[in-house]
């Protein structure tokens, strides 16, 4: 074992090209991250096959794979995924837009802060799911109530991060702009916005996370399409494979959308001087 380790290390040190080394490193982290899930899946498959897990409660991974394949072959799987993503996207957009407008105003203008912030904080303390009955009452169980619910969920983390991002911009950098006689608009555009971008992106990512939570809630509360609907359908038809498939789908999609934002974040913030980026 010792000797194996030693050779691995020496080949890595021997890597001259930086690029190759980086790719190697990312692959390695990815591989490391896959180890535990893989072991769990194998154990699960084994226990299902030996009958420890009753198939009517927890079907084997292979069965779930099969059911996912069947659905995608029948073609309606993509429809469900599409509608869920669509709802999430629209809700995310609306929630983010509202958060940007209000958050920027509250963060930048003292007056706006005294006017709006107490109210928004009060609304924040309402558990967002408590809105469900009201939204259904107002807008029915169609698309609008779902999208609005998602938007509400996305709004708060984005809003909070924008406000704190703007308020914590370094006074010293703002003074640089003042020395050059920047107008308020220029100050915002050229200093405050870029300086608060890191915090905004953190907000976007946690907003997206909450967005996924609320998609499920919205689709559970009455839908005829979407992955959340598949969950309910699976429950009503006693098909655990369908339920678990939906959960797996949520996991995969959530991970993908988050990675998209993460990549974007890394691209936009490459100028940051953080531990992670020191190589």
């Amino acid at each position: 074992m010792m000797s194996v380790k030693a050779t691995v290390v020496s080949t890595e040190v021997g890597q001259k090209s930086k690029k190759g080394f980086q790719v190697n490193a990312t692959l390695k982290t990815a591989a490391l991250g896959a180890v535990v899930p893989l072991i769990l899946v194998i154990a699960w498959e084994y226990l299902s096959r030996t009958g420890v897990f009753p198939p009517h409660l927890l079907p084997a991974p292979s069965v779930i794979c099969q059911s996912l394949m069947n659905m995608s072959a029948e073609g309606n799987l993509w429809g469900h995924i599409g509608i869920t993503l669509y709802r999430l996207f629209i809700g995310f957009l609306i929630g983010t837009a509202a958060a940007v407008v209000l958050g920027a105003a509250v963060g930048y203008l003292k007056k706006a802060e005294s006017l709006f912030d107490p109210l928004i904080q009060a609304f924040r303390s309402i558990p967002s799911l408590a809105w469900v009955p009201l939204f259904i009452l107002w807008m029915g169980i169609g698309e609008p109530s779902k999208v609005v619910l998602i938007a509400v969920g996305v709004f708060f983390p984005v809003y909070l991060n924008i406000v704190s991002g703007i308020q914590s911009v370094d006074r010293k950098l703002i003074e640089v702009g003042k020395i050059y006689n920047f107008s308020s608009l220029q100050l915002i555009r050229r200093i405050i916005l870029p300086a608060s971008l890191p915090s905004f992106l953190v907000g976007l990512r946690s907003g997206l996370g909450l967005g996924w939570m609320f998609v499920v809630a919205a689709e559970l509360m009455g839908a005829s399409t979407g992955i959340g609907y598949l969950l309910v359908y699976g429950q009503n038809t006693y098909s655990p494979d369908l339920i678990i498939s939906s959960i797996v789908l949520f996991a995969i999609l959530g991970k993908i959308t988050d990675s998209i934002l993460k990549t974007f974040e890394a691209k936009a913030l490459h100028w940051q001087d953080t531990i992670e980026k020191k190589a």
């Binding site: 010293k172 950098l173 003074e175 640089v176 020395i179 050059y180 300086a195 100028w271 940051q272």
Partner: peptide, 23 residues
């Protein structure tokens, strides 16, 4: 007025050639 501060106060998101003509 133009001013050079005691610290550099560069804008961390701009490259050197963007920081210089900032004003």
């Amino acid at each position: 007025i133009g001013m050079i501060f005691q610290e550099p106060r560069l804008l961390p998101w701009l490259k050197v050639r963007e920081n210089i003509p900032f004003g």
